[in-house]
């Protein structure tokens, strides 16, 4: 079985075929930026994008992910290291506290901005409600998404 993550194709050892996507990413491929927190699809810490849709990878089987384009936090910046405007806004607004939830937050925010180039607070609250942050960085996430949205709109 093959898995394509951040543009790179990986052959997955048969011992790992029954694992969920999260564990394969983290413990087989060493892409540990995607994190485990609840394991039941309730918190968004494990969020990645599969063919452009944000998915909780703790609930995704390997077979459903195989053959699709998977994007993880490690693939969010440009190849030359230039950060995505969302990542940059996250730094500028000093969003992370412990940081544990933030890969998932960024993945969800990325798909939100694909769906909606100019989200208001209500749009953000709705889209981001599945991504828990125990540290309570929510006000800064709201600000950063709006900031990045402006940057992305202007770049168009």
């Amino acid at each position: 079985m093959k898995l394509k993550v951040n543009g790179v194709e990986y052959e997955i050892d048969p011992d790992w075929h029954d694992e969920n996507l999260l564990d394969v990413l983290r413990d087989y491929l060493g892409l540990t930026g995607t994190r485990f927190s609840c394991g039941i699809g309730n918190c968004g810490a494990c969020m990645v994008q599969i063919d452009g849709l944000s998915i909780n990878s703790c609930l995704a089987s390997l077979s459903m992910a195989a053959g699709k384009e998977i994007l993880t936090i490690e693939g969010m910046a440009a190849d030359d290291g230039t950060l995505h405007p969302l990542q940059q806004a996250w730094i500028d607004e000093a969003v992370p506290q412990c940081g544990y939830c933030q890969s998932g937050q960024l993945m969800r925010a990325l798909s939100l901005l694909k769906e909606n180039a100019d989200p208001d607070d209500a749009d953000i609250d709705q889209a981001m409600n599945g991504n828990l942050c125990r540290c309570g960085s929510y006000p800064r996430i709201r600000r950063s998404i709006k900031k990045a949205a402006i940057v992305l709109r202007e770049a168009r």
């Binding site: 930026g33 490690e74 969010m76 950060l83 969003v95 940081g99 933030q102």
Partner: peptide, 12 residues
């Protein structure tokens, strides 16, 4: 460490 967090570097 903020950059490490937003780029998914190993931390925990």
């Amino acid at each position: 460490g903020t950059r490490d967090i937003v780029t998914g570097a190993p931390l925990y």
